[in-house]
Amino acid sequence: MAAPKGSYIPVQKAGHLLFLSGQLPTKNNALIYTGHVGSEVSLEEASQAAKLCMINSLAALKASLGDLERVKKIVKLQSFVNSAPDFTQQHVVTNGASDFLQEVFGDKGRHARTAVAVPELPLGSPIEIEMIVEID
C-alpha cells in the first residue's frame, strides 16, 4: 500500500461505508506514470495507470479490513484525469479501473462513477481515483 502523500488517512469508515482517499498509480511507493493524458501519456498507458490506482485502493482496503471478503459492493468511483487541453476521453481512461473491479468482484464490482478532466494532479500524476465501498 502506498504511503499517504499528505495529512490524511487512506480509509475512513462511516457505518457500513468505507471512503477511500484518492490513489495514484504508484508501485513500491514510486509514481509509475507522470504527465497529461493525451500529450505525454497515451490512452493505453492512462488506462493501465487507472488499473494501478485500483490495485493500490484494494491494498488500502485490505489493510483496513484484513481481507476483501467483507466487501458487499463497490458503490462509486471518482476519477480525476490530468488531461491535455483537447483530451475528452476521461471515461475511457477510467474504464481501466472499472473493468478491473468487475474482474475482481464480479457484480459486486459494478459501480456508479464520475470521470472528470483536471489541469494538474499531485506529483504530476496522470490520474487519481477515490472510491466508496459498502462492507458487511
Rank of each mutant, 00 (worst) to 15 (best):
I32L: 14
V133D: 06
L77G: 03
L101E: 13
N56W: 09
S79A: 15
I32C: 14
V75H: 15
D99W: 03
E69V: 00
I129E: 02
E69P: 00
E103S: 14
V75T: 11
G96I: 01
H91L: 03
I9R: 12
S39N: 15
G35T: 02
L68W: 06
K73F: 09
S83E: 05
G6W: 05
G109V: 03
A2L: 07
P85R: 00
Q78M: 06
R110T: 11
Q12P: 00
G6L: 01
D67A: 06
G22R: 01
S39D: 15
S57G: 15
H16V: 00
M1T: 04
I32F: 07
E40I: 08
E40N: 14
T26L: 06
G124C: 11
V11W: 12
H111T: 01
L101P: 11
G22F: 01
A50I: 05
K108A: 15
L61Y: 13
L17M: 10
V93T: 08
R110N: 15
Q23Y: 02
K27W: 09
L43Q: 15
E40W: 13
T94Q: 15
R113T: 01
V93F: 12
A97F: 03
T34W: 07
N29R: 04
G35K: 02
G106F: 11
K108L: 13
A46L: 13
P25F: 07
Q78L: 06
F105I: 01
T26Q: 14
P122V: 00
K5W: 11
T34K: 12
A3K: 08
L24K: 02
S125C: 04
F87D: 13
M131P: 04
L20K: 04
Q89P: 06
V104L: 06
H36P: 03
I32Y: 09
A59Y: 07
L31V: 05
S42R: 11
K108T: 05
Q48V: 08
Q90P: 07
G66R: 08
